[in-house]
Each structure stands twice: as C-alpha cells, then as structure tokens.
C-alpha cells in the first residue's frame, strides 16, 4: 500500500497549481525512494518532473511501486479551497482499486477533514526514464536567483505573445535573453555578479563553450515554480534537452526539460 503524509500542504498544493496551469494530466510514480511526478506537453517540447524524496515526507510508506495517472488540472482546481497549513495524507489501498485518496485535515484539532478521491487515468507515454546527466555534459550552466529570472521572463513575455520564442545565449561572463515580438526584439543582458557584493543572490555562469539556443517562452515562464525556490539552474547543451531546475529543498526539486527549437 501507499501512505504518505506531509504536515504542511503548502508545498504539494503549490506544485500542483504551478503544473496544473500548463499540463492537464500527470503521472505519479511512487517507489521506496520517493514520489516522482511527470507531465509532458503534447507537442513533445517540454517534460516536467517533480521529485519528492521519501525523507521530505513526515511519514512515507510504500511497500510496492505504484504508477498513477491523474488529472492534474482537476486536482489543482479541487485543492484551491484547502488551507496551506492543512495536514495532507495521500493513500492508495492494496486492492488496486484505481483510486487515490488525498486527505486534508486542519491541524488544530482535526475538526474538519476533506477526502478527495481521484480516479486513475491512462496517460500514454509516461513515465519515462530520466537519467541524471553530469554537469560536464552541458556546454553552459547558469545559476541565478528565481527573483531575478521571474521578472526577466515577465518582461520577455510582455514584449511578445503566447507563441513568443526566446533565444538564450551564454558567453564567458554573461547570459542574454532575446525575445522576438511582432514589433521587434527585446534583449536582456545579465552579467555574472561578484559573489562578494551579493553573496546571497549571485548569478553564476560556468561555460565550456559558447551556446545559443531557442525555446518556447510559454513553458519557460514558470512563474509559480519560481516562487517555490530561491534559485534556478539552467543547463544548456545543443545535444541534450535543456534543464531548468528549481531546487525546493535539499530533498525535492522541479525540473523542466525543454527541447531547443530549430532556428
């Protein structure tokens, strides 16, 4: 059976809301080591993975791997009226009844308990095996505060429209974000910051070779994910899917894998 408990619902709620905006369905895969969520877009450009390690839960029991396809958009809608400080329990029974129960319980005296039962659904093409590529496989890695990356995405998207593309170019000590709109182009230039000046919020660039790649801004502009994490790590390579990683805690992260578009 599967039984997981988080004392504060905030993290799980925020993640479901952040992803429910972009993806209608997701695949939840539980194992002894943790809970993994995968969602993909139908055009095969973006794959999102959330990893919550078993240690991130206050209680984690999973004696057999379980795969659940769920309606993410429906879950996001259902959870919007629950409280952030509720205790959340996720439970699926041994009889494989094809439903999972999410219980939200008020922390004071448990005087109100909501049971959400979600039916499993068939989702083609997920879950996928996602290897951890070593950093050396990427041509460039940029680390910057989410509080800096989020306004950059907002500026780029306000310049264009829903189908705007962004070109990210990394040079030795700088990263450029360029978006093309109907009226022209916008370029945002970010220099590597000295860690001495702003030790808590550096922009760091590790570059093996210059790289310039084009992405759909729609999926890059994951503002709700940015609120879950202080830092975003952008790993770029012309040979691998780019990774936008938001580390939530030491034990959990959201990764956006994005295929660069052809020029």
């Amino acid at each position: 059976m599967l039984e997981l408990r988080l004392v504060q619902a905030t993290l799980f709620k925020n993640v479901v809301e952040a992803l429910g905006d972009l993806f209608s369905t997701a695949h939840f895969n539980s194992s002894r080591t943790g809970l993994e969520l995968q969602a993909k877009d139908n055009s095969r450009v973006t794959l999102i993975m959330l990893l919550l390690r078993a240690e991130a839960f206050d209680h984690y029991l999973c004696d057999r791997g379980l795969s659940m396809g769920l309606n993410l958009a429906g879950m996001a809608k259902a959870f919007c009226c629950t409280n952030n400080d509720d205790i959340i329990t996720i439970k699926a029974e041994e009889d494989w009844s094809d439903t999972v129960t999410f219980t939200f319980e008020s922390p004071e005296d448990g005087d109100e308990i909501s049971y959400f039962h979600f039916d499993f659904m068939v989702i083609n093409g997920v879950p996928l095996e996602i290897p951890e590529y070593p950093e050396s496989e990427y041509q460039a890695i940029v680390r910057m505060p989410s509080a800096k990356f989020m306004p950059i995405c907002n500026k780029l998207s306000s310049f264009g429209d829903r189908d705007t593309v962004v070109i990210i170019s990394v040079d030795k000590e700088s990263v450029d974000f360029l978006s093309r709109g109907k009226t022209g182009t916008l370029t945002i230039f970010c220099r590597e910051t000295q860690t001495v000046d702003k030790p808590k919020e550096p922009t760091l660039i590790e570059m093996k070779e210059k790289v310039s790649l084009m992405f759909d801004l729609r999926y890059m502009n994951s503002s709700k994910a940015s609120t879950l994490s202080d830092q975003v790590t952008i790993s770029l390579s012309s040979k691998l899917p780019a990774v936008f990683e938001y580390k939530i805690t030491e034990m959990s992260c959201i990764r956006y894998y994005m295929l660069p578009r052809n020029e």
């Binding site: 794959l47 795969s67 996928l128 996602i130 899917p241 894998y257 295929l259």
Partner: peptide, 14 residues
C-alpha cells in the same frame, strides 16, 4: 520497470 521509455526517445519523436 514501470518506465515506458527514455527522455531522449520522447524528444526524438517530436
């Protein structure tokens, strides 16, 4: 093995 394929096969079919 509940996994259905690799991330690279997902993107290659794009």
């Amino acid at each position: 093995g509940t996994k259905q394929g690799s991330i690279m096969s997902f993107f290659k079919k794009a």
